[in-house]
Design a protein around this nucleic acid. Structure first.
Lengths: 339, 339
DNA sequence: CCGCGGCATTGAAAGCTTTCAGCCACGCGA
DNA sequence: TCGCGTGGCTGAAAGCTTTCAATGCCGCGG
């Protein structure tokens, strides 16, 4: 029954109702110190009565400074990005900013569309985990005045900042832990090597072996899983287990793959870690709760997101000249029961 | 070295460079049919050269119609909301809209702040999972012309739509499955009962027993975990297991709690499901991958998010009068090994 | 009594787009 | 030849805010 208010009351209606000029209302909002107490209180009362809500669009248009930041990530259902998003959001909240979160689902056309929508929307800046490493479009955006920070991907261009995790170190940590425990036949269930992160972990693992005086090709066997699905892992694993000299340890590209591996091993009556050791990657929440808790590599995702947002805000305030910063976080080996 | 373009070129610069009026440029963008081919091509070329990007803020200001939708959820790290967010995003993408995702972290003051920021930002509408069930502020927002749809919470007010999941049914499904398998001493590790979802599941479980001709107070033992942490579960469980007649089945408020329970049981040498059956709730991705895979209740979170977004868009287009719709999804029991 | 500094307030301009009434020129029918 | 319709284009207004030069007023010092 209550006829819905079609048009929102603006600053103008407030001014009229309070018997002051629009400028005064604006001052009440933005520089209360300039307004006499009596006037201010009156205006504030009227605002209350009218249910006044500032029109942020007009404000940003005028100020030329947005209160939103865009993030284009690969997959919102992935705990990795979810943790990063928390970090981003918390940092943005400190600057009174909000996050527009876009999931590209690894599809380049979707990424492109979101980048354009965000730029049109006038965001203060963008955090991007690119599907492919083609920075040209991002450079163009940045040249047009919208700062861009790369997430989880070391920047290939001097002009663009990036925040990433040292995946090579991550691979090395996992592998050298296994080598240190005496393993000499290590299976690495890795992701596609065209993904820079996977390639880096592979290099790191090899480095670990070499540092231990072992020839990688003799001791490290790498299998690429097309998608990070666990099904694929199963059949691969079954083949490997029938070899005359099966591996004594398995490094996995993610905790979820590790989980699938452990499940299969258990079914085959193979004990973890006594018969075969398993190392995961990510340290998702359930890793610690498993029957045999998972040894894994933790990535500081929250900090990563937080730092990326901080960098972006600094650039967008011109506190920092754009580009040139390449922040790299160190992953950490979490030793539990599985290896 | 390349002097960064400080001010973006607008429609005006394009018009000047192409030797046409601003109105014409606008027509090229919005009603290409009205513009002669030759002119259109010239304008488009100039846009390309100048790297023109439409100013969405000004556009929305003029049109009075935003291309963003806000969502205030309880926790972005929770897979439940993450899946819902996917659904929301996919539906919004169809309408060329973007999602501003805000995580209230269950803190009322944070929720309030986000609601205000979103309203000021002029979003097209809001999807909210409220921390407390106080709809008054939401009603006020909706009266000011911004539609609100409640997510995962049946609407207590006629004027506000909601999309939720039948938690009572969920509790009933889990309990009646256990009863059907002969269990007569069931422990329910539930969440705080002031959370409507938890209270509903409790009612559902009791209903299941009554339907089976059993007196709930004799067969269903409910323990409230203050937070959904697994630590709490452990100590509680240890006490219960020492009872003369320990439970033969455990219903958990979430899969993560179920995981903690199973871990503890295994440590105590209790077999699942032979000695004690365990049922989870949520069906998170790892539930199927566990050593003894988890019987659990799946919630159609993607569909929930998608439907909520659809409802909101319909309201914001005035295709639908506001309010009155209360959509309820059915959870589904997924029977696996643990019960 | 005059002049001046400072406080409180004012109202127009600017920010960028979309919309729309209006203008011009051209071609066709009468 | 005139009148009219129309396709194509124009430019001002509107949408809501913030900013800022300008105004008015008061009191104080000279």
């Amino acid at each position: 029954m209550p006829a819905p208010v079609r048009r929102r009351n603006g600053i103008r209606e407030v001014a009229a109702a309070a018997g002051v000029a629009v400028g005064t209302v604006s001052n009440v909002l933005n520089s209360p110190g300039l307004v006499a107490d009596e006037t201010r209180e009156r205006v504030e009362r009227v605002m209350q009565e009218l249910g006044f809500v500032r029109n942020g669009l007009a404000r940003q248009l005028r100020e030329g400074r947005a209160s939103t930041v865009g993030a284009v990530i690969l997959d919102i259902a992935n705990p990795f990005f979810t943790e990063a998003a928390r970090g981003i959001e918390d940092r943005l909240a400190e600057a009174e900013c909000m996050l527009i979160l876009c999931s590209s689902d690894q599809r380049p056309e979707r990424e492109t569309r979101y980048l354009q929508m965000l730029e049109e929307h006038g965001v203060r800046g963008m955090l991007v985990t690119p599907v492919q490493v083609d920075v040209e479009p991002l450079l163009a955006i940045q040249r047009r005045g919208v700062p861009v920070v790369l997430m989880d991907c070391p920047s290939p261009a001097e002009e663009i900042c990036s925040v990433s995790i040292d995946d090579e170190l991550g691979g090395e940590l996992a592998a050298s832990h296994l080598v240190g425990r005496g393993h000499r036949r290590i299976l690495f269930l890795n992701g596609p090597l065209r993904t820079p992160q996977c390639a880096a972990r592979s290099r790191g693992a090899q480095r670990a072996l070499r540092r231990a005086g072992l020839e990688p090709s003799q001791h490290l066997f790498e299998v690429v899983l097309p998608r990070a699905g666990t099904d694929q892992a199963e059949s691969t694993l079954d083949q490997v287990l029938t070899l005359p000299a099966p591996p004594t340890a398995i490094m996995c590209v993610s905790d979820l793959v590790a989980l699938g591996v452990m499940r299969l091993l258990r079914r085959r009556g193979i004990r973890v870690p006594d018969d075969i050791a398993v190392v995961g990657y990510d340290d998702v929440p359930f890793a610690a709760e498993l029957a045999t808790s998972l040894t894994t590599v933790r990535q500081p995702m929250y900090d990563l997101g937080r730092a990326a947002a901080g960098l972006l805000l600094a650039e967008s305030d011109h506190r920092t000249p754009p580009g040139g910063r390449r922040q790299v976080y160190r992953p950490e080996l979490i030793v539990r029961e599985s290896a």
